[in-house]
Simulated scan of single mutants.
Amino acid sequence: MIGFVDSHMELNLGAKFNGGFLDDCNLSGGVFKNAIFEGVCLFRSDFSNADLTQAEFYLCMALGANFSGAVLNNAKFIGGGFEQVCFANADLRSASFLKDNMGGEVILYGADFTSTVLDEVTFDGCLYDATTIFPVGFSPEVHGLLKINN
């Protein structure tokens, strides 16, 4: 488990994080363009104000992670759990939340999308619950999200 990563690091060349734990990491303000996070645990990690343009999160578990103010344009979230994750004020333009290759959904229980830019976002097979917060005027079912009563 890594506890601190230099928040000013730039990984523009598509760094790959394969498996392992980045729990409780301070990655705020970092540049992670084209980074690939595959099967990584990101519990309570702080990506606030980070540039994650075209990053890919494949089968990641990010319970309580903070993506507030992050740039996630064209990012892909494929399968995995993003429960109680804060996306408030993030820019998710053209991002995709997709089922994995085995049909596993992206879980967004308790996620906070307050004031998040969701223009042209694809939600294919995402699950949310009553604690998930969406921007004012956003209709999750119209955008392909499925509400689960748990």
Score class of each variant (00 low, 15 high):
3 G>H: 11
4 F>V: 03
5 V>A: 15
6 D>E: 13
7 S>V: 00
8 H>D: 01
8 H>P: 00
9 M>D: 04
13 L>V: 02
14 G>R: 07
15 A>S: 08
19 G>W: 09
19 G>C: 03
20 G>M: 04
21 F>G: 01
21 F>E: 00
22 L>K: 04
22 L>Q: 01
25 C>I: 08
26 N>T: 06
28 S>A: 15
28 S>R: 09
29 G>Y: 13
29 G>N: 08
30 G>M: 14
33 K>Q: 08
36 I>Q: 07
36 I>T: 08
38 E>F: 15
39 G>H: 02
47 F>I: 05
48 S>D: 03
48 S>Y: 11
48 S>V: 06
49 N>G: 00
50 A>L: 04
51 D>N: 15
53 T>G: 06
55 A>Y: 14
56 E>G: 05
56 E>M: 11
60 C>T: 06
66 N>K: 14
68 S>Q: 12
71 V>C: 09
75 A>K: 01
80 G>W: 11
81 G>P: 00
84 Q>K: 10
88 A>S: 15
90 A>K: 04
92 L>Q: 01
92 L>G: 04
95 A>G: 02
95 A>D: 02
97 F>H: 07
97 F>W: 08
99 K>S: 03
102 M>Y: 12
104 G>M: 12
105 E>G: 08
105 E>Q: 09
105 E>H: 14
114 T>N: 12
118 L>Q: 01
120 E>I: 02
122 T>R: 09
124 D>G: 05
124 D>F: 12
125 G>K: 03
128 Y>C: 03
129 D>F: 08
129 D>R: 05
130 A>F: 13
131 T>C: 07
134 F>S: 09
136 V>A: 12
138 F>T: 01
139 S>N: 15
140 P>D: 07
142 V>I: 15
143 H>D: 00
143 H>Q: 10
144 G>D: 03
145 L>W: 02
147 K>W: 05
150 N>E: 09
